[in-house]
Nucleic acid binder design. Structure first.
Length: 277
DNA sequence: TCCTATGTTGTATG
DNA sequence: ACATACAACATAGG
């Protein structure tokens, strides 16, 4: 797989891409961290004070496990060391040969005897947080409920849409405080399947459309995790995903040309026939 | 040269 | 205080 070839490709990470990249470091769950290489201009270390402790404490430790929530990952190391990673727009995690010479986009490299665990990010919108302690860091514990969890209910969603009632529903779906992991293409996919025009005010969605929205949020999360999240394979046939960036793209459900316009400051794609205001 | 980019945040305004 | 809108961040590619 060549991640360097972007096209309109899926290098930019939403929930399922994050899950895929998280697993790339599973290869490092054997052996210890021998040394740590940091990029000299480490913009992704927003919290300056975390740089030196990371450098000092990670060598000699083991990677014990990891999990993903929304667009964040958390890696757990022995000795009560935790590494939080956000991929921003162009971040990715890889496991590469131990002979790796870090390049200018390699902000963090954990060297082991058999491999190098790499965080690479050209645009540097990503973020790394280091934490020490027996418990997960507080920012992790305070994350909103996962969209596939029991705590994410139709009512929780409805209440949020009501509070953000005057904003276009497209913008509201991108708010990570309630819809962790959704990004631009997932939001468009959800609205397309729900038959809701992306410019509709969030507060005007009620009844059956609310049911559909809740159902499709979960269906799109599941479908993306089962495909992209597993091995980066394409999402199922028939998804808007396969048409949304194509010039002259056509709605896979109706055959009508797709519309593309900026809504809420983001390029948005929808099917005019299928999605009503 | 200018435009685009699937993310987030800080700031201004309502 | 809260919601909303948008520029800014840095880089690569068409």
């Amino acid at each position: 797989m060549v991640f360097g070839v972007a096209l309109h490709g899926r290098v930019m990470p939403e929930l399922a891409e994050v899950e895929f990249f998280r697993k790339q470091w599973d290869a490092g769950r054997v052996g210890r961290i021998l040394s740590v290489a940091l990029h000299p201009v480490a913009r992704v270390f927003r919290e300056e004070r975390s740089v030196e402790p990371l450098q000092r404490h990670l060598p000699g430790k083991r990677l014990l496990g990891s999990s993903a929530r929304g667009k964040w990952m958390l890696f757990r190391f022995s000795g009560g060391n935790w590494l939080g990673v956000h991929l921003g727009m162009t971040g990715r995690m890889t496991a590469e040969p131990a002979s790796l010479e870090p390049g200018k986009a390699d902000h963090l490299v954990l060297f082991q005897s058999r491999r190098a665990l790499v965080f690479r990010d050209t645009r540097q919108f990503g973020c790394i947080r280091f934490h020490r302690g027996p418990e997960e860091p507080s920012w992790w514990r305070e994350m909103p409920p996962d969209l596939l969890s029991r705590e994410f209910t139709r009512e929780v969603m409805a209440e949020f849409l009501r509070c953000r009632g005057r904003a276009p529903v497209k913008s509201v779906l991108l708010m990570q405080e309630r819809f962790p992991g959704l990004g631009n293409w997932m939001a468009d996919e959800i609205l397309w399947r729900s038959g809701i025009h992306p410019a509709v005010k969030a507060g005007s969605i009620r009844g059956k459309r609310l049911d559909a929205l809740f159902r499709e949020i979960r269906a799109v999360c599941r479908g993306a995790l089962e495909t992209i999240g597993v091995d980066y394979r394409d999402p199922p046939d028939g998804w808007l995903f396969h048409h949304r960036w194509r010039d002259g793209g056509v709605c896979p459900a109706t055959g009508v040309p797709l519309e593309r316009e900026s809504i809420g400051g983001r390029t948005t794609c929808w099917s005019p026939e299928k999605q009503r205001r």
